[in-house]
Simulated assay, not measured.
Amino acid sequence: MTRFDAADPDDRRALFVDAIAAHEHRESPFLTVEAEPIPADEPDDDAESAAPPWVQYGDGTLNLDCTDEELDRLKSLLDEFSAITIDDLHRPEQAEGTNVRLTARTDPERVAQFLDRTFLAVYERPDDYRVWAAEV
């Protein structure tokens, strides 16, 4: 794998496919992709709100954190991806939001499409958002 970020939709999906292939080749426990953070409007904004969204993938399992609103959007998105299903929802008492584990019974290209749509639809990133393969 020679590149680690992309902002064009086709390049992002190719990056996701390449990251999955590198992850499988290296037999790493998981890979992490994250979108660039949206800059905070105010210097006093909570740093947590500016944290970039991320998704982990390993052995056909996707893992992500989301707010209640993002979870609703994720559930709607899953209507388009019948081979990807919610496996577990975990709401830690000490944290806001939900950790979601999904099972993906599909090929890397379809997972790449799902990842791109997740950042666009669930995390509401703009069409030209930049994503990084943060850990492979």
Score class of each variant (00 low, 15 high):
118 T>D: 04
90 H>P: 01
124 E>V: 06
103 T>A: 04
117 R>Q: 06
116 D>P: 01
76 S>A: 13
87 D>L: 14
97 G>P: 03
76 S>D: 15
116 D>R: 11
78 L>W: 03
109 E>D: 12
123 Y>S: 09
99 N>L: 15
101 R>S: 14
126 P>D: 07
85 T>G: 12
89 L>T: 07
94 Q>W: 14
86 I>T: 15
125 R>A: 10
112 A>D: 04
90 H>K: 08
125 R>D: 09
77 L>I: 07
106 T>Q: 03
110 R>G: 10
106 T>E: 07
123 Y>R: 09
122 V>Q: 04
81 F>R: 08
81 F>S: 03
99 N>V: 13
103 T>S: 08
115 L>H: 08
114 F>G: 01
126 P>A: 07
100 V>E: 11
83 A>T: 15
122 V>C: 05
113 Q>N: 13
86 I>L: 13
126 P>L: 10
109 E>K: 09
88 D>L: 11
101 R>F: 15
112 A>P: 02
120 L>K: 00
123 Y>N: 01
88 D>N: 10
97 G>F: 01
109 E>Y: 09
100 V>F: 14
98 T>M: 12
82 S>W: 01
95 A>Q: 14
120 L>C: 06
102 L>W: 08
101 R>G: 03
112 A>T: 06
109 E>P: 05
119 F>Y: 14
122 V>N: 03
97 G>T: 00
74 L>E: 07
79 D>C: 09
121 A>Q: 08
121 A>F: 11
80 E>S: 14
101 R>V: 09
127 D>F: 10
90 H>E: 04
91 R>P: 04
78 L>F: 04
118 T>I: 07
76 S>T: 08
91 R>N: 02
122 V>A: 02
75 K>F: 05
118 T>K: 02
76 S>W: 05
126 P>Q: 07
86 I>F: 14
124 E>K: 05
